[in-house]
Nucleic acid binder design. Structure first.
Length: 424
RNA sequence: GCGAUCGUAGCUCAAUUGGUUAGAGCGCCGGUUUGUGGUACCGGAGGUUGCGGGUUCAAUCCCCGUCGAUCGCCCCA
């Protein structure tokens, strides 16, 4: 019998790692409410065409990274490689345009058949925020500010910078793209092999080529600013002003482009140099053409996605944010009493565990409790009077510890209340 | 899809240029010490050295294949 193992690029998490993941999600959910973003739920799998058409047939994600399968009814389905396409499909299908502008968030697993490495998995998880049905630059500012505050509250804002660019409107983007193709086509001899390929599929991406040989070419490639329509220019101007007003710092990254075909106007990434080859922690932009292209009403929209694993790797060490108590019955016969006490403490919102292992003698159990990081131990012993049966201990001398002690006393059942402090 | 490095108890790692019975810490199991401010003590179980082949008198160590991990390329969060 061969040992079962998890599929490549998936992860099992517990302890510290799981706590970090959870902290990222919890922080996101707290902050998004401050910005008035609701919650949206969409399926983990969709009809394959939902992603194939929206992302662009030639993108790597569609051409070789999708987890697609045929179900028993013969339909081609795909595990979602990103959130936006599914949300756009739901918006169209359910007629949510009546709710526009819609400010929604979600988070969950995504799937891409890629070679795993640092900060990259086949099943990975993202936070996601979208504003659908708002053409105003203020919507861009809103989603970016949300991202910035999530990062700040995670304590990683000093390790991340916001790179901002515009891809212009369709007209701008088209003209710029043509100019880039012309520019790079004139220097095929120096262009790296990868970039020559990109010239066919996605010439914009040559701009962030890592190849040394491409660097000089990229440096004097035509900049989008020269092709900007006045509308597109004004839009980008307004976004930058709004960010300044929101106190969100950014740098202009003229060569920043986005991977999927549906992006227009604002493109941005929060990047870090602390994660090896995976610098992007949150990436997004405006995708005004997408919903229309998918057969829905022409609908402007802007949004972003952030890698939960990447954020979890970036955040500082987690300090425990609440005190934990363990109730230790001295013998199995004291278990019921211990259970009753623990129940009361929990009603008082105190995090309480019951030690039901009876492992080792008292000294050993104290050691184990300390090792597990409890802030207080409440022994339940044999004894005739209620107050004699309890022994509260192992609380440090800090103010928080004294508060904990008072709270414990407050939520003990009546007969125990005479307990006169701990003998620690 | 391509490249580099790695793969030894449940976990983290040892094992002198290939050499006898593959070790330690943590964890686990049993016992001792009647109870503490992150050092108790004694004993025990647990490995076909990822898997398959090859070279050799002899392989954890060298070679090939395969699977997996890590990091990078591509791409992306």
């Amino acid at each position: 019998m061969t040992k079962q193992q998890r599929p490549r690029g998936t992860q099992d998490m517990i302890g510290e790692q799981a706590a970090r993941f959870d902290h990222v999600v919890e922080t996101f959910n707290r902050v998004r409410k401050l910005y008035g973003f609701g919650r949206i739920e969409v399926p983990v799998f969709e009809a394959t065409s939902v992603f194939a058409r929206s992302l662009g047939e030639t993108t790597d994600v569609v051409s070789k990274e999708m987890y697609s399968f045929e179900d028993r009814g013969g339909d081609s389905l795909t595990l979602r490689p990103e959130f936006t396409a599914g949300i756009a499909r739901a918006y169209i299908e359910n007629g949510w345009q009546q709710l526009a502008p819609l400010k929604v968030t979600t988070w969950g697993p995504l799937f891409r058949y890629e070679r795993p490495q640092k900060g990259r998995f086949r099943q990975f998880h993202q936070l996601d925020a979208e504003v659908i049905g708002a053409a105003e630059p203020a919507a861009d500012v809103e989603v970016i500010a949300l991202a910035a505050q999530v990062l700040a509250e995670l304590g990683v804002d000093d390790r991340v910078v916001l790179q901002l660019n515009t891809l212009g409107d369709a007209e701008t983007r088209g003209a710029w793209r043509e100019a880039l193709v012309a520019h790079f086509s004139g220097h095929l001899d120096v262009l790296s092999a990868e970039s020559r390929e990109r010239l066919e599929k996605n010439p914009l991406r040559i701009l962030d080529s890592k190849a040394e040989s491409d660097r000089a070419l990229v440096a004097d490639a035509p900049r989008i600013d020269a092709f900007m329509t006045s509308e597109a220019g004004a839009f980008f101007e307004a976004v930058q002003k709004g960010l300044q007003a929101s106190g969100v710092g950014f740098v202009r990254a003229a060569s920043l482009v986005r991977g999927f075909d549906y992006y227009r106007h604002t493109a941005f990434e929060f990047v870090t140099d602390a994660l090896g080859a995976q610098g992007t922690v949150i990436g997004g932009g405006r995708y005004d053409g997408l919903i229309g292209a998918m057969g829905g009403p022409e609908t402007p929209a802007v949004g972003w996605a952030g890698g939960i694993e990447r954020l979890a790797m970036l955040i500082p060490d987690l300090a425990p944010d609440f005190a934990r108590i363990v109730v230790v019955p001295d013998s199995p016969s004291m278990l019921e009493e211990a259970t009753a006490i623990a129940y009361n403490l929990r009603r008082g919102k105190l995090s309480t565990t019951i030690d039901i292992a009876y492992k080792g003698n008292a000294k050993r159990r104290v050691e184990l409790a300390k090792k597990s990081g409890y802030d207080a131990i409440l022994f339940v012993r044999e004894g005739s009077r209620a107050k004699d049966r309890l022994h509260l201990t192992h609380i440090g001398g800090t103010e928080a510890a004294s508060m904990l002690l008072l709270k414990v006393l407050e939520w003990l059942p009546g007969p125990y209340r005479e307990l006169s402090g701990d003998d620690a």
